[in-house]
């Protein structure tokens, strides 16, 4: 494997966004890119990352390999990279280590690190293709604000989507709160728009602690997409350039 990223910031942000949710992960490398799928310890949330080969230049992967990496270790090494450094990942066939180099674009500084790999026996889940009943695309900062504000009151949030819009509601010991958003097109800045596409109304309840965790990815993208259908896990997607993405799935809470 040899994969060169123009900006180390991308990988730094991705790892930062998922390291509190999952710890030891296989980075599955093949000629289409680098993928990661991992569940959190409680088996309630799942991270699915895809960095397409087009996000790297150049990208070469002659044989499929799984790089088992501890994200705490990776974080320590990535801290040594500046955001605008050029980052290159390298691994041999049947590797013991993954090699990372960081090149400063404006000086002759080159740093190089090896991280020991681990054997990770990871459960791989088949995620069915789902036609979601409701898809909401909104500014990622808005979604972060909603989850943060409501998590101060309650452990859970009910998300209801109807043709009127989407409503986030919570009930806690001190009282209750809600935030409603309507479909809205911002003509000056499309990134601030709220798009709602609905085939049937949905109402689901989720644990806020996971949603707050997902929002650590907000720095990766101006927009976030929420996909919901009744009684299936929520999909929260942060799109990256070149069709790469960081997705989170969260199992709902269901009434007794």
């Amino acid at each position: 494997l040899e994969a060169r990223l123009e900006q180390a910031a991308m990988l730094k942000r991705v790892v930062d966004a998922i390291k509190d949710l999952v710890q030891d992960c296989n980075f599955d490398c093949n000629d289409s890119g680098i993928a990661l799928q991992a569940m959190d310890n409680s088996h309630v949330a799942l991270v699915s990352m895809m960095l397409k080969s087009e996000s790297f230049s150049p990208f070469r992967c002659d044989r499929n390999i799984a790089l088992g990496i501890n994200l705490t270790s990776l974080t320590k090494v990535l801290r040594a990279a500046q955001g605008d450094d050029i980052l290159t990942l390298k691994a041999e066939d049947a590797p013991d280590v993954v090699n990372l180099t960081f090149e400063s674009p404006e000086s002759d500084r080159l740093s190089e690190y090896d991280i020991k790999l681990m054997d990770i026996d990871q459960e791989h889940l088949g995620i069915p293709d789902t036609e979601y009943a409701a898809t909401i695309t909104l500014p990622s900062s808005e979604f972060s604000r909603i989850t943060r504000d409501l998590s101060a009151l309650s452990e859970s949030v009910a998300i209801e989507c109807t043709k009127e819009g989407v409503k986030f509601t919570c009930t806690g010991d001190i009282g209750n709160g809600s935030v409603s958003l309507r479909q809205h097109t911002n003509v000056e800045n499309d990134a601030k728009s709220v798009d709602i596409s609905l085939t049937e109304p949905v109402a689901l309840t989720f644990s806020l602690k996971y949603l707050v965790n997902f929002c650590k990815a907000a720095g990766l993208s101006d927009r976030v997409r929420l996909c919901l259908s009744n009684e299936v896990p929520l999909l929260v997607e942060y799109g990256l350039s070149n069709n790469s993405y960081l997705r989170f799935y969260l199992a709902p809470k269901i009434g007794d």
């Binding site: 409680s42 309630v44 889940l125 799935y249 269901i254």
Partner: peptide, 14 residues
């Protein structure tokens, strides 16, 4: 009250 469902109730083990 509601209880938290696990993902394995929805996604298959590959």
């Amino acid at each position: 009250t509601s209880h938290q469902v696990k993902l394995l109730a929805f996604f298959n083990d590959k």
